[in-house]
Design a protein around this nucleic acid. Sequence first.
DNA 1: CAACGGATTAGAACGATTCTAAACTGTGAG
DNA 2: CTCACAGTTTAGAATCGTTCTAATCCGTTG
Lengths: 144, 144
Amino acid sequence: MGKTLRDTGKGAAATATAKLRHAGLRPTRQRVELASLLFKTCDRHVTAESLHDEVAGAGVKVSLATVYNTLHQFTEAGLLRQVIVDASRSYFDTNTGDHQHFFLESEGMLIDIPGETIAVAGVPAPPPGLSVDRVDVVVRVKRA
Amino acid sequence: MGKTLRDTGKGAAATATAKLRHAGLRPTRQRVELASLLFKTCDRHVTAESLHDEVAGAGVKVSLATVYNTLHQFTEAGLLRQVIVDASRSYFDTNTGDHQHFFLESEGMLIDIPGETIAVAGVPAPPPGLSVDRVDVVVRVKRA
DNA sequence: CAACGGATTAGAACGATTCTAAACTGTGAG
DNA sequence: CTCACAGTTTAGAATCGTTCTAATCCGTTG
């Protein structure tokens, strides 16, 4: 025994390292650690603080500043997408494809809605000199 | 001369006072002042700071704390609507009806899109125990 | 293995917002 | 009209998330 551990070890780290290299980011211990946590599972929504707590809980020491730096670098590299739904916290989504969100404000919870599900029609032409960058839809929900 | 001044005076103040009473808010000097500025024109988008600057520019002294308090009270009273589009600032919209926004991040500018213009179809049923509160659409635009 | 430049870090700094406790002011009763 | 109370305002401190700084560290390349 000792061989059949979960995938948190070498497998995830190797994948993460490859992912980082692809993105042109130096695979440092911290980045590999964070990437492993973020991309081990699909479609995660994290906050700088939640990720910092998570990595700390995993027994690894990464400073909060590095978590912030990393989240932004990953976002610039297209590995993450920033989701703006709350005035006081920034969320980062591991799903970078075209999709929208349910947002349960009372619990700070985000739920993905696949891209093809919602259809937005009738978006007017933006004022002269401007072009559409992205259309975000947030379905704000409450406890029934 | 001296009689044909702009509407910044009694007219606006009277309207504002009425509006405040309707909303169940005591028409204090500060609230009347802010309401006058906010509702004199249609469809305004303000920030706590921008409104604070504006009222100061009008020669009236209202503390920033009061501006924040007032914006929140107006929002609770349904006179304003908070718009969440930027991670670092909160915007308040004097248009409380059903509508969406263009957002030009580089300049912190919001532009209303009338409610009937955009059609959102295919919003899935929220997870059990939750109900849809509102569907927000933000069309993020850039300088062409 | 040396060394260069990018990465990490603790802690300070920051900007937006909220809180606190004291001073002030509409308002309804008398 | 005046009083007194509850609701308001305020300056300044405090808080929160986030960013900056300057020193240290570490991947990578030669």
